[in-house]
């Protein structure tokens, strides 16, 4: 009985995190982006600096009519948002925010593989949406999504493998436990490659070619409206949370920090993840969208060689110090 309660509690906590953190990131994006562009951003909803803007947006989405285009493949069209969103919920289960069993939803033995595999499944949602919408812009968006995923999955995997080599384990808590401060310079290239590839996998600007709104309206999500559209948006922001949490855990040492080793480690994890989320927003504001060929070129000619070099470096250092 106690076990069941424990599991239920963990699931509940993860679910709450899943529902709130993306909104926090979204609101931060509203505000940070506005100020980086010399604006104020939302100021009305909720009274104080528009803190409830995304709640208001959610209410608005819920009120909208749920439309399925006449020519669409109905069931796949309706299923796609769930396929896009659920993997991130699963991934959140496996990300540890503090030392010990208590600070992770579920300890997964092959944590890295679990996380990357499930994140890859999320892209299926976009593909389904792109194909089932019966819309040429959606189809183009789906094609671009697939091409982008194929290009950026590999560097992500390779850099994750580099960290796993360094730590000698593929479990996420194990990696953080083995972390030393000098891993940061050692795995720096890998961290950057992982982060960039993750951004591309989330289709965040400057890698948002699949949803390039000035060319193909909104890519695979063109035909969506109401709650299903909101689910896709939530998936994107949940993806940011997951990516930042993963990068923190893999490359920035998770709960390790100068102070707070006793019980306050989770603050460090959250702080680092928040900083990374800020960087995600910062990059979005700063850089223009990459063209499709530039996007492919960046991955195949820069990120993959860099990640291979990182693996080689990791191997050499590992052999030298052991």
């Amino acid at each position: 009985m106690n076990d069941a309660l424990d599991v239920a509690l963990r699931l509940l906590v993860v679910f709450v995190v899943f529902l709130t953190f993306p909104l926090i990131v979204g609101q931060t994006e509203h505000k940070v982006m506005a100020h980086m562009q010399g604006r104020l951003g939302p100021m009305y909803a909720g009274g104080f600096h528009g803190w409830a803007q995304l709640v208001a947006d959610g209410v608005k989405f819920a009120q909208k009519e749920d439309i399925v285009p006449a020519g669409a493949d109905r069931r796949i069209f309706q299923l796609a948002p769930a396929v896009a969103l659920l993997p991130y919920l699963l991934v959140l289960l496996a990300i540890p925010i503090g030392p010990g069993e208590g600070a992770v939803g579920q300890v997964v033995d092959a944590g890295i593989f679990f996380v990357l595999a499930v994140m890859g499944v999320g892209v299926l949602g976009s593909l389904m949406a792109g194909w089932a919408s019966a819309n040429k812009f959606s189809l183009l968006g789906g094609l671009r999504t697939a091409a982008q995923l194929l290009a950026y999955e590999l560097p992500m995997l390779l850099t994750a493998a580099s960290v796993a080599m360094a730590a000698g384990t593929v479990s996420l808590p194990g990696i953080v436990a083995a972390f030393e401060w000098w891993w940061v310079p050692w795995q720096l290239v890998g961290a950057v490659v992982f982060f960039v590839a993750g951004l591309a996998e989330l289709q965040r600007p400057p890698f948002d070619m699949p949803v390039a709104d000035s060319e193909i309206i909104f890519g695979a999500y063109t035909e969506y409206t109401g709650l299903r559209f909101a689910l896709f948006l939530l998936a994107e922001y949940a993806g940011i949370v997951v990516l930042c949490g993963l990068t923190t855990v893999l490359f920035l040492g998770g709960w390790h920090g100068p102070w707070g080793a006793d019980g306050l480690g989770w603050v460090w994890t959250l702080l680092k993840a928040a900083l990374l989320a800020f960087v995600v927003i910062w990059l979005r504001v700063t850089y223009p969208r990459l063209r499709e060929d530039q996007l492919q070129k960046l991955s195949w000619t820069l990120l993959i060689p860099l990640s291979l070099a990182q693996i080689a470096l990791t191997g050499i250092v590992k052999v030298v110090i052991s």
Partner: peptide, 21 residues
């Protein structure tokens, strides 16, 4: 050049906004 772009946006963030309420 990339770093310069980031600096521009960061600097703008610390400045006063121009929004007319």
């Amino acid at each position: 050049g990339l770093a310069k772009g980031l600096a521009v946006t960061l600097r703008t963030m610390t400045k006063k906004t121009v929004t007319a309420q």
